[in-house]
């Protein structure tokens, strides 16, 4: 494992910790998209089907369990926790997330590395992850007061995607057999979606003002 991959996984982990910290300690999920969180839970459930079949390393197994557990915990908090659920901004979280699941599934059936159940689910999860941030970005645009933790959550999530691209470039030159067009193209699309957010995040950080995304 190279440094980019490790740094990517760690920023991913930090993003989840930041979000759980906000939800668990402040008991608020204001500005957080339940749609995006549900999509992530589905992404991890589909991708980590191989958890008990295909062993990579202890590191991989533990990280998979962490991402699975945390994503379902966040969804549980937002849907069921009696205090947290009241802070959910349902009116503005209107992205029709169900409608992007089916196209991703069809794409997974058509474009995969091997036509087996696990490989189709893997490809499906890659495509779904690429667009899963969309409801969150839409909600951020509609949120007047984006709190720091929410902004940092999205920032770390985006940083994780950028670092994964560096990881692939590194692996491409160091591991001649490492070619994953599906994850590379989907990953680049996913990272580009953060472009606008990054621009305004860095701007707000430089000028020391509260983050606000133009509608």
């Amino acid at each position: 494992m190279n440094l980019f991959r490790l740094a990517g996984d760690m920023t991913h982990l930090v993003s989840v910790v930041v979000l759980l910290l906000k939800i668990h300690t402040i008991k608020s999920c204001a500005g957080v998209s339940l749609k995006t969180q549900e999509l992530y839970a589905l992404v991890f459930a589909a991708r980590y089907l191989d958890l008990f079949v295909h062993f990579v390393s202890l590191y991989n197994t533990v990280m998979k369990l962490v991402f699975l557990a945390s994503s379902f915990t966040i969804v549980w908090y937002m849907r069921r926790h009696k205090i947290v659920r009241r802070t959910y901004d349902k009116e503005h979280d209107t992205f029709r997330h169900h409608f992007i699941v089916l196209p991703c599934l069809v794409l997974g059936l058509l474009l995969n590395e091997k036509f087996t159940f696990r490989e189709v689910m893997w490809a499906f999860s890659i495509y779904l992850e690429a667009v899963a941030i969309l409801p969150q970005l839409v909600l951020l645009q509609r949120t007047r007061n984006i709190d720091n933790l929410t902004a940092q959550y999205v920032f770390f999530l985006g940083a994780y995607r950028v670092l994964y691209i560096f990881n692939w470039i590194y692996r491409y030159f160091t591991e001649p057999h490492f070619v994953h067009w599906i994850s590379w193209i989907a990953g680049i699309v996913q990272t580009l979606l953060y472009g606008d957010f990054f621009y305004y995040y860095i701007l707000s950080w430089k000028n020391n003002v509260k983050l606000e995304l133009p509608a």
Partner: peptide, 10 residues
């Protein structure tokens, strides 16, 4: 193109 089907990333 050789494809490494062992998905070792998260």
């Amino acid at each position: 193109v050789m494809v490494d089907i062992d998905h070792d990333e998260l």
